[in-house]
């Protein structure tokens, strides 16, 4: 079953990270990705640019609207994702717990709705 981990963090928490912190963070993610690959469950991942770079568009009601910024202002913002292929939610939860983002922010686990 395919699961996507949506990684949410509060940008304010990241503001006072030093360059060394970022090196450590990058290493932690590298190790995590290697572990996912070793287990044969890794499908995809990405780290997203800062929230203020977001562009939101909608064509609801037939009219194109483009908004500079995210669709909703929230304290914690989507900063990246992982897609994994594991048998069930218990396994997905076990992997999500090991994700570095779980320690800094929150990891939302969503099962794929595509059969």
């Amino acid at each position: 079953m395919r699961y996507t981990f949506l990684l949410y963090t509060d940008p304010a928490d990241l503001a006072h990270m030093t360059p060394e912190d970022w090196v450590g963070e990058k290493e932690a993610y590298g190790t995590y990705i290697d572990a996912l690959k070793d287990a044969g469950v890794f499908l995809d991942t990405d780290r997203l640019a800062a929230i203020h770079t977001a562009t939101t568009l909608s064509e609801r009601g037939g009219e194109l609207r483009v908004q500079d910024g995210p669709f909703a202002d929230t304290k914690e913002t989507l900063g990246g994702f992982f897609v994994v292929d594991v048998p069930d939610l218990d396994t997905a939860m076990a992997w999500a717990q090991k994700c570095p983002a779980a320690r800094r922010g929150k990891v939302e686990i969503r099962a794929s709705a595509m059969v």
């Binding site: 069930d88 939610l89 218990d90 969503r110 709705a113």
Partner: peptide
């Protein structure tokens, strides 16, 4: 049903 909570017994540790 949709999030994949299974009826498999969790392993001994869990």
């Amino acid at each position: 049903r949709d999030a994949g909570i299974t009826f498999e017994r969790p392993d001994r540790d869990a």
